[in-house]
């Protein structure tokens, strides 16, 4: 497989996953705000966290500095903003551009799911959406990404393109959970009284509430939640699970011994796994620990 093709498949997959994660996070947020006012301090913290996780801390700080953060601002920035490289629209565009450049390596159903979605939202204008339509759009983003994954799972040959799409997906998901953990840790550190509140929010935002409650009898103990998010071996959003799956895909791509092509990636993943395992879940200074891990994700590229 051409290196350019591998790159494009990897980023197509990551961007699809990212669009779904951001959309899920926003649909949680849209519901949360319904029952309270935007000025509510906790709501402000949530909106801040959403931007922190799905875009960047800098952007979240910038919005905060301007006064009250509104849901409108957050949706506009995370969903539509051209200047935000991680906005859902940009993710969809990048995923589609990458898919288009490797059309001969992905099956037609997968291409059509991505292409049709892009065509439907390409000219969408944020201001035209009612709350109801907004929810529908978020749902649509989520379902598009899930259908794409369904097609990949059920119809794609288990060859190199498949494994590379898997690596992209699991790395993106691991990074997302990690960013969520970091953002939540910061909040808990600022205000330890609200720790349970934020733990619940974190679980919702990684789409893990149901799974967690099934396992834990509804006790949102921070140490349980953190353990669940980091190391629960059966939860497909935990960092450990994601990295395990990414590693599996690399082994299938390269064989046990690997090759120089993925060597760097494998090394980095091993370092992360080691560090994650060393974390003590009672540790107060989680924030710092995640800060240390963060730089390892960013340069990861196939």
């Amino acid at each position: 497989m051409l290196i350019r093709v591998a790159d494009a498949l990897y980023w197509m997959s990551r961007n699809l996953e990212r669009s779904e994660k951001t959309a899920s996070l926003l649909s949680v947020q849209v519901l949360q705000v319904l029952e309270s006012q935007e000025e509510d301090l906790l709501v402000q913290e949530e909106l801040y966290t959403a931007v922190n996780v799905a875009a960047s801390k800098e952007e979240a700080d910038r919005l905060k500095a301007k006064g009250t953060i509104t849901l409108h601002q957050v949706l506009s920035y995370l969903l539509f903003a051209k200047e935000n490289p991680n906005s859902v629209m940009n993710c969809v565009r990048v995923a589609r551009e990458n898919a288009r450049s490797v059309r001969d390596h992905i099956n037609d159903d997968l291409w059509q799911i991505i292409n049709v979605f892009f065509l439907d939202v390409e000219f969408a204008k944020f201001d035209d959406y009612s709350d109801y339509q907004m929810q529908r759009l978020l749902q649509r983003v989520k379902m598009t990404s899930l259908s794409a994954q369904g097609v990949i799972e059920s119809t794609t040959m288990r060859g190199m393109p498949y494994q590379i799409m898997k690596i992209g997906k699991w790395m993106e998901r691991a990074e997302y959970t990690q960013r969520m953990l970091q953002a939540i840790s910061e909040k808990v550190e600022e205000d330890s009284n609200s720790s349970r509140y934020f733990m619940r929010l974190a679980l919702q935002m990684i789409n893990g509430s149901e799974a967690f409650l099934q396992l834990r009898n509804a006790s949102i103990e921070p140490s349980y939640v953190l353990h669940f998010m980091i190391a629960e071996p059966n939860f497909p959003g935990s960092i450990q699970y994601c990295l395990k799956r990414a590693t599996d895909a690399i082994v299938k791509l390269e064989g046990e011994r690997g090759s120089s092509y993925t060597q760097l990636l494998v090394q980095e993943i091993n370092i992360i796994i080691e560090r994650v395992m060393q974390l003590s879940f009672e540790d107060v200074d989680l924030d710092q620990a995640f800060h240390d891990i963060q730089p390892y994700y960013t340069p990861l590229k196939v």
Binding site: M1, L2, I3, R4, A6, M160, S259, Y261
Partner: peptide, 8 residues
């Protein structure tokens, strides 16, 4: 000779 750059 002409070659293509593959991941291997």
């Amino acid at each position: 000779s002409v070659y293509m750059r593959t991941i291997h």
